[in-house]
């Protein structure tokens, strides 16, 4: 029982991070049709900038804010100088552009920062909390709580503000969005900035548990992409559920089968979804593109 609970909580914790990465994918995909493989680099930036700012003596909360702002700036630059000039290009071209951007960002991070692993102190100490026999790191609560706040904020934004509805409208029908006077270029920039912020928050929350380095983004992007596919690309609820499921699958797989193959589960999920149910668990939001 204690063991099961241990796996459950660690699964939910990583799952929450995958969910945030998947949400980042979803937001950009919905607003622009682009699958942004530089999503993982936003997570890396969140962790790395916080680490280096904190090491320079900036208090942790402020360092985190700086990291989020840095990621947003990079997201906006990515949109402005890599995606926007290629407007109208094919989906494959755009994917290649984002992969290129991801490699570039990783390279820059290796130069600007370094190639070492880095750690952040847990936000509220390292003393495990005992839950029915399972020892839970307090940072797990930060990850889960932080994810819940992000998901809730995104939900309120999309469903209850005019700007959020404009994002949904752009996702549903880009042509009609332009005809009602929505500046879809601004909406895309907003999506890139928002995705970058979400990614950076994920990176900041999880770095005390998993460490970070210049290249953590690659694997995270893959996991997040698998989660988004599992939930149904373009569906925000699907992204969260997909992320959680993938996290649980990894944790239980590693716990009960073998931890050697932990990272293989994401690939397995991608393959199974592609072959068996390309639309994912939740399908995609009825997207009518023109």
């Amino acid at each position: 029982m204690a063991e099961f609970l241990q796996f459950l909580i660690s699964g939910l914790t990583v799952g929450a991070v995958y969910a945030l990465v998947a949400l980042g994918f979803t937001l950009i995909y919905n607003a622009s049709g682009v699958v942004n493989f530089a999503q993982g680099e936003f997570v890396m930036l969140g962790g790395m900038v916080t680490v280096f700012a904190a090491a320079a003596g900036v208090p942790l909360p402020l360092a985190a804010v700086i990291a989020i702002c840095a990621a947003i700036a990079i997201g906006l630059l990515l949109h402005r100088f890599a995606i926007e000039p290629a407007r109208g290009a094919s989906a494959v071209t755009l994917i290649i552009i984002t992969i290129g951007a991801s490699i570039l960002l990783r390279g820059l991070a290796a130069i600007v920062f370094d190639k070492q692993f880095h750690k952040l102190p847990a936000f509220t100490g390292d003393t495990p909390v005992d839950m029915l026999g399972a020892a839970v790191q307090p940072q797990s609560f930060w990850v889960l709580g932080g994810t819940a706040v992000v998901v809730l904020a995104l939900y309120i934004f999309l469903e209850h503000t005019l700007l959020g509805k404009a994002v949904l409208a752009t996702a549903a029908n880009r042509l009609a969005a332009r005809l009602v006077g929505i500046n879809t270029t601004t909406i895309m920039a907003l999506a890139f900035g928002g995705s970058a912020a979400i990614g950076a928050i994920a990176g900041i929350l999880v770095t005390p548990i998993t460490l970070t380095s210049y290249d953590v983004g690659t694997l995270l992007a893959l996991k997040g992409f698998a989660a988004a596919m599992l939930g149904g690309m373009g569906n925000p609820v699907g992204a969260v559920v997909g992320g959680m499921l993938l996290g649980l699958l990894e944790a239980f797989g590693a716990g009960y089968i073998s931890s050697t193959y932990k990272d293989a589960f994401a690939f397995l999920v991608i393959l199974i979804v592609l072959f068996a149910a390309p639309q994912g668990l939740f399908g995609r939001r009825a997207v009518e593109r023109v």
Binding site: L168, A169, N173, L175, A176, E288
Partner: peptide, 8 residues
């Protein structure tokens, strides 16, 4: 072709 925002 109307082009309403279907999911909204």
């Amino acid at each position: 072709g109307r082009q309403v925002f279907g999911p909204l």
